[in-house]
Simulated scan of single mutants.
Amino acid sequence: MPKKVFFTTGVGRHKEMLESFEMALRDAGIEKFNLVTVSSILPPGCIIVERSEGLKELVPGEIVFTVMSRNSSNEPSRRIAAAIGCAIPADSQADFGYLSEHHSYGESEECAGKYAGELAREMFYTWKNEYPLRISYAARSAEVDEDGNWATVLAAAVFIL
């Protein structure tokens, strides 16, 4: 069961799509890990920590579970966004919360982030029939350059076991 989670975002640019994703992982600080994407539950008792603290607890090559949103494009001037929303229950030690992934075109970081936060809030509500204590989000957006190089954005909730 994950004991901690941190949120991170990244953006990468390159003439190759895969390399732009690698650059986004580097920008987010999670390129050294074998990432396994999981669905959207924030476990009971899981403490949210700063990225710098979380990264200190991980070892290169480690299998790391993450909830990730990502988006890529090479369409000149296209704005892309990726966001993770988080709904935190009133009793976070005993109850689980929700994480949501949202990726979009044409939205700012703030717009995509707020949407992801509200999405997590509504997912929590449909399960618990009550609203969470609070919501938050991590989001990133970028615009594709005029030359049509690939841009990739990502937002992730990274679990520490």
Rank of each mutant, 00 (worst) to 15 (best):
E62D: 08
I48K: 05
N74M: 08
L25W: 10
S72M: 06
L42R: 05
V67F: 01
E62W: 00
S40P: 04
I41P: 05
V36G: 10
I63L: 11
E62N: 01
N71H: 05
I30G: 13
D27R: 12
P43Q: 05
G61N: 08
F33S: 06
E50T: 03
N34V: 09
L55C: 11
G61L: 09
V67S: 09
E62V: 00
V64L: 02
T37N: 13
I48C: 11
V59P: 11
G45Q: 03
A28C: 01
S73I: 04
P43D: 01
V38D: 04
P43R: 10
S72R: 10
G61D: 13
P43K: 02
K56D: 14
L55F: 04
V64T: 03
S52M: 05
G61S: 07
V67K: 13
E62K: 11
G61F: 03
E57Q: 15
I47C: 04
R51S: 13
I63T: 07
E75S: 12
L58H: 04
P44F: 06
E31M: 07
L58F: 04
M68G: 02
V67T: 09
F33H: 04
V38R: 14
A28P: 04
S72K: 12
N74E: 05
A28I: 01
N71Y: 04
I48Q: 15
E57L: 15
E53N: 09
P60R: 14
P60E: 11
E57I: 04
T66I: 14
D27M: 13
T66W: 00
P43M: 07
N34Y: 02
E53P: 07
V59D: 14
E31Y: 08
L42N: 11
E53R: 07
C46V: 05
S73M: 06
S39N: 12
V38F: 00
E31G: 15
E57D: 09
L35N: 13
S52P: 01
S69I: 01
C46A: 10
P43V: 10
P44W: 02
C46K: 08
E50F: 01
V64Q: 12
L35E: 13
R26L: 11
V67R: 01
N34T: 06
L25C: 14
S39G: 11
I48N: 03
I41V: 14
V64W: 04
T66E: 00
E75W: 04
R70K: 15
E75A: 09
R51G: 03
V67D: 00
F65W: 03
M68Y: 04
L55A: 14
G54E: 05
T37K: 15
E62H: 05
S52E: 09
F65L: 02
N34I: 09
I47P: 08
S40N: 15
I48S: 12
I30A: 06
L25N: 14
E53F: 08
L25K: 10
V38A: 07
E62R: 13
F65I: 03
G61R: 10
N71V: 00
S72A: 13
F65V: 02
E31L: 07
F33I: 01
E57P: 04
S69Y: 00
I63K: 15
R70Q: 12
I41Y: 13
M68Q: 08
S52Y: 03
V36Y: 09
L42D: 06
P44E: 06
R51C: 03
R26C: 03
